[in-house]
Simulated scan of single mutants.
Amino acid sequence: MVRKEAVGLTLLRVFLGLTFFIHGFSKFQGGIANTVDFFDSLGIFGFAAYLVALIELFGGIAMVLGLGTRVFAGLFAIIMAVATLKVKLAVGFLGNGQMAGYELELALFVISIYLALKNKSYWALENVLFRSNIS
């Protein structure tokens, strides 16, 4: 693989990981009870807020390190699909002046799908631990 592509893939993976880590951290920092209430208001079981926050938090760290890239990218894609469909789709791509649109969710969804489908993650800890040869 060309070095430029490896750099690009690594930047996408690290950006995605940091973004989800920060979102997961903020759910706990802002009081996870608020997120539970928000999920309930959407008709989603409140306990799912804990699951989503933990996936974002620990999955974000794992993604930055390059551990379980494909698995966590798939989970992130599911989270973004639900967030888009349940919350953001009604306000449109750019939003409605009171709430941001789904442009960020869509971008994170597409990056997640790309990384979930990618066979290898470059400059990743999983390559060292599992002795992957990257070509």
Rank of each mutant, 00 (worst) to 15 (best):
F58R: 02
L18A: 12
V110G: 15
K118P: 10
F39P: 03
L117E: 08
K86L: 08
V110M: 14
E103Y: 04
S132C: 13
E105T: 05
W123V: 10
F58M: 08
L65M: 11
L42T: 11
L67W: 01
N119Q: 13
T19H: 04
I134L: 14
D40F: 03
T84P: 00
A62V: 07
G31D: 02
L115D: 04
I134Y: 12
I22K: 10
G92T: 10
L75K: 05
L117H: 11
A77D: 15
M80V: 02
M63W: 04
L16E: 09
Y50E: 06
F47C: 12
E126K: 01
T10S: 11
T19V: 04
L12Q: 15
E103T: 04
L16M: 10
S135H: 14
F20T: 09
V36S: 11
I79N: 09
F109I: 06
L108Q: 12
S112D: 12
A116T: 14
G101F: 00
F21W: 00
L104E: 05
V71S: 06
A83H: 06
I32G: 00
F45R: 07
L9R: 11
L129K: 06
N96Q: 09
K86G: 13
L11G: 05
K118Q: 13
K4V: 13
S121P: 13
H23L: 00
K4Q: 13
S41A: 08
L85T: 07
G31V: 00
S41R: 12
L125F: 03
F72D: 03
M1Q: 14
G46F: 01
L57G: 03
G43M: 00
R13V: 14
G46S: 08
L89M: 13
A48W: 07
F47H: 00
I22E: 07
A62C: 15
G97K: 10
N133T: 15
L75H: 07
L67P: 01
M80D: 04
F28M: 02
N34Y: 10
A107W: 01
V128A: 06
G68K: 05
K27I: 07
G60V: 14
G74E: 11
I22A: 11
A90Y: 13
I61P: 00
F93P: 10
K27N: 08
G92F: 06
N96K: 03
Y122A: 10
G31E: 07
L115N: 02
E105G: 12
A116E: 09
T69I: 06
A33V: 15
A107R: 02
G60W: 00
G66S: 06
N34G: 14
A48K: 01
E103F: 01
T35Y: 08
K88Y: 06
S121N: 07
L11K: 04
N119I: 12
